[in-house]
Structure formats: structure tokens, C-alpha cells
Design a protein around this nucleic acid. Structure first.
Lengths: 255, 255
DNA sequence: GTTGACCCTTACGTTACGTCATAGCTTACG
DNA sequence: CGTAAGCTATGACGTAACGTAAGGGTCAAC
């Protein structure tokens, strides 16, 4: 029979932790004295030890309770699922690290990094400017008419409209960026690309396949586009161009 | 002038988040209507964008507030410090992953993994067994007398005593493990090693330099010791042996 | 019987919001 | 001009896993 502090010293946790585990019914001492003192047995200590093992590998206490309270619980499945979670977390942290390092690097490099470069454009003016770029480029390549019709349409948009449009386009970018580990011909990617073309058609101009293909090229040939797009994820611009080409090839074949 | 929902849509955060940022004075709208509506300006949006950048790389909001509120704040230092934190987290997760994978592997391998292998010894009996190992080994190498005197002493210990002793020895292991990035000759390490010898002398037997040095060798030559010690941190056993050797060399020189 | 070392419960603080609940404001429509 | 839809606001509780008092019993020893 061990009292709280004995247990705490033996396994190296705090008394508070034992109180808490008692409270959430994760580890309740086998007996209690008339004075209310918790008395733990060796069996309790074993359970605690198991709790600590699962805790060490990052399981939340609720899961641990499930695992320990139900002997039929599929530990193997739990471990695999948990591994996935850990891999996700690791990826997140690695992304953070890479961003931090890039930031440190670009400050050290004396580039001094204007904030406009550092952050994605977001407000109405930025979106307009962004669109202007498209327009100018498009003018040279596909004639004025389309562009002017686009400008007539965008001129009417309220700031709420712009917000929604921006949001929607961000979503598409993100969806594609999330699929960069697969192939540009992947059905999910192709669906997102189709959405992207539809988005442009809906909000800016009738985006035929010729224009769409040219737009894809623009993404890698014009560094203003490349930089902006690659902010979502490095390499996204090139990936999108490939996906857009594949999309156009397939559409043309279908006719 | 944007209302909360406009801002939320534009930058992709929730209204609640904006309320919260207002509350903790991280981002307060430039003006408020008579009805209490928050009105954000472009300047506010820029600040929000910066907040999101630092949040993305994992800074806590309190730090972000410091960074943004004080233009003289050393961002470079903050970034470096933050990088360290991220590296720590990454290490933790990688350790978890490795343990999870080991566990999965040993279950799959049909080894079925007895709990004694899976968990560190912790209770009184385990500690005693653990000590027995020392005793047996010591018997072969340094004769019975010392060992028997140790056993006479340890026989008197209560479970509280054992708990305290175990706790203390764990602390020493941890202290040394924490210094593994430095050299075994590092003063802090050497101090901990001295503590370790004192610990053994205090609670088990008069640990002279010859015995102490031999004990260090045991830590890497006997896998029962190695495995137990390396549970604190892989490589700890070897590191301790090196540190103990250096300690003994110095002590012998001083005479 | 009085220290001193333990033990107990209660309860707030932590992080960054999500999720109601309740209620006031604004705007478009009939 | 009334009203319903769609905003907005302020609480306030919940989350995870304890840390940290506060205030107050218990037990063994001197």
C-alpha cells in the first residue's frame, strides 16, 4: 500500500497528477482510508506505468483510458492511427521550420524583405492589382475584347464579392497544393483544375482552352505569377502548369 | 472600413478569432460604431496578416503581440529562439515515432512484448532486483565483503527510502542525459558523475575509484545495464562510461 | 499536546479559440 | 412602416493536462 507521495516519487509524477488521474477515473486507488487517504497497490502502479508509456508516445489520456479499460481494444489499430497523427504533426513542424529558416535567411541576406513580399496579398486593392496583372498580360496575348469584358464585370464587384472570390480561389490553390505529392494527372487535381477554370470563367472572362493553357505557361514564365503562387507552396506554379496542360489535352481530345 | 465578417472572409479566420484578438488586445479595430460594431481599416488588415504569418510558424499569440507592439523588438533573436523550440518539438515527435514503430514492430514480430521489457522498472521489487544485478556482477569482480555490507544496508530500507533513492538516481541520470550534447569532460557532467558516485556510496557501498571505473565499463559491456540506462536516452550508457573514466582519471591525478 | 510532514478538496490559471445562448442593429422587401 | 433575414454584440462554458495556491484535516514523533 503506497500513499500518493510514495507513488509520485516512485514513478516520477506529481501528486497533482495522481489526483487528476483519480478524478478523471483513469487511475483510481484500490482503497481509501477512513480519513480519505488514497492507498495504491502494486497493481495500481502497474497500470500507472502503462499509462505513462502511452503518454510518452503522445496518446491523449482519454485514448489511454479506452485502451486500458477495454481489453478487447484494438491496440494495433490505435498505434497505427497514432503514428499517422504523429507524422502529420511532424510534417507541420517541418513546414514551420522551413518557413522560419527561409525568413531568417532572407533577413540575413540583407534582402530586408518588404512586408508585401512576405505576406500574401489579401485586401481589395491587392486583389485588383493582382487582376490587373492578369489583364495586362492577357491583353498582349489574347486581344483586348476579352479583357475589357472582364474589366466591365469586375468593376461591379463589391468588396464582399471580392472577399468571396479571393476566398474561393485560395481554396482551389490550397486544394491543388495539398495534392502535390501525387501526379498532376491525378483525378482530384484535375477536378480542382477544372474548378479553377470555372472560377475564372465565372468571375472574370470566358476562359477557353487556349487561354487556359497560356495561363498555365504564364505561371512559370512570369516570375510575378510564380512568386505569388509559390507562396502557397514552393513548386506549386510548375505543378499547376503541368496539371493545366494535361487538363487541356484531355478536353481537346474529348471533342 | 470592414466589418468583422468581411475581415473574416478576406483573410480566412473566424469571427470568434477576431473577437478574441480584440479581447486580448492583439488586434483592436481602429473604430467602433455607436452600436458597438467593430470597423477594421486596411492598416488593421495588414497587422492581422502579420499576426497570421507569425502564427503560421508557430509563435504563441503573446509573443506575436510583443513582436508587433515593439518596433525595437529583436525579431532575429526571436526567430532563432523559436527555431530551437521547433527543433526540440521535432525531436520529441521523432522519438515518439520511433517508440511507436518499435512497439508496432515488436507486436507484429510476434514477440508479444512482455510488459517488463516495455516499461522501466519502478516499484520496490524491481528496484531490489535491479540492485541484485549490481550485486551479482559486483560479487564476481570485487569480492563478497563489500557486496554483503551493501546488502546489509539495503535490507533495512523502507519503501519510502527506496522511493527516495530511486528518485534521486533518476534525477542524476536525467541530469547527465540532458548534457549529452556537450562533452563527457564538461564540468556539469563531471559534477553529476561525482554525485552519482556519492549516491552509490551513500546508499549501497563504499564506491572506490577502481569499482567506479569498473562500473562504468559494465554499463556498456553488460547489455542488461546498457538497455536499462539507454531507456533514459539512447547512448547514455556509453556517455556515462566515458564521463566516469574521465572522472576517475582526474581523481587519481589529484592524489 | 504540539510540531512537522503528509493528506484532502476546492478552485482558479493556462492556450486559442469553438460553440451556444440571448439580445440588439441594419437592411431589403412588401 | 412593419417585419423577417442576416448581421452584430457580449457573456459564458468547454477543451487538455495538469500547476499552483488556499484553507484545513491526519498521523507519528517528541
Amino acid at each position: 500500500m503506497y500513499k500518493v507521495k510514495d507513488v509520485a516519487n516512485i514513478v516520477g509524477v506529481s501528486v497533482r497528477t495522481l489526483h487528476y488521474y483519480d478524478q478523471i477515473e483513469l487511475l483510481q486507488p484500490e482503497s481509501i482510508t477512513p480519513a480519505g487517504y488514497r492507498l495504491y497497490t502494486d497493481r495500481d502502479l502497474e497500470r500507472l506505468q502503462q499509462i505513462l508509456f502511452f503518454k510518452e508516445i503522445g496518446f491523449p489520456l482519454t485514448k489511454i483510458k479506452e485502451i486500458l479499460d477495454r481489453p478487447d481494444f484494438d491496440r494495433m489499430h490505435a498505434l497505427h492511427a497514432h503514428k499517422e497523427i504523429l507524422l502529420e504533426k511532424k510534417k507541420r513542424i517541418e513546414e514551420m521550420l522551413s518557413t522560419v529558416e527561409q525568413t531568417i535567411h532572407s533577413i540575413e541576406g540583407g534582402t530586408k524583405m518588404k512586408e508585401e513580399d512576405m505576406f500574401k496579398g489579401f485586401d481589395m486593392k491587392d486583389i485588383e492589382k493582382h487582376q490587373k496583372k492578369y489583364s495586362d498580360e492577357a491583353k498582349q496575348k489574347y486581344g483586348k475584347e476579352i479583357v475589357e469584358s472582364a474589366e466591365r464585370r469586375t468593376a461591379k464587384y463589391t468588396k464582399e464579392d471580392w472577399a468571396r472570390i479571393q476566398q474561393e480561389s485560395n481554396d482551389i490553390y490550397k486544394k491543388i497544393a495539398d495534392q502535390m505529392h501525387t501526379d498532376p494527372s491525378d483525378p482530384e487535381v484535375q477536378q480542382a483544375v477544372a474548378d479553377w477554370r470555372q472560377h475564372i470563367t465565372d468571375y472574370f472572362y470566358e476562359c477557353n482552352l487556349e487561354i487556359f493553357r497560356g495561363l498555365g505557361d504564364l505561371y512559370v514564365n512570369d516570375e510575378r505569377f510564380t512568386k505569388n503562387i509559390d507562396k502557397f507552396k514552393p513548386g506549386l506554379a510548375a505543378f499547376m502548369r503541368d496539371a493545366m496542360h494535361i487538363y487541356c489535352d484531355q478536353q481537346e481530345k474529348e471533342r
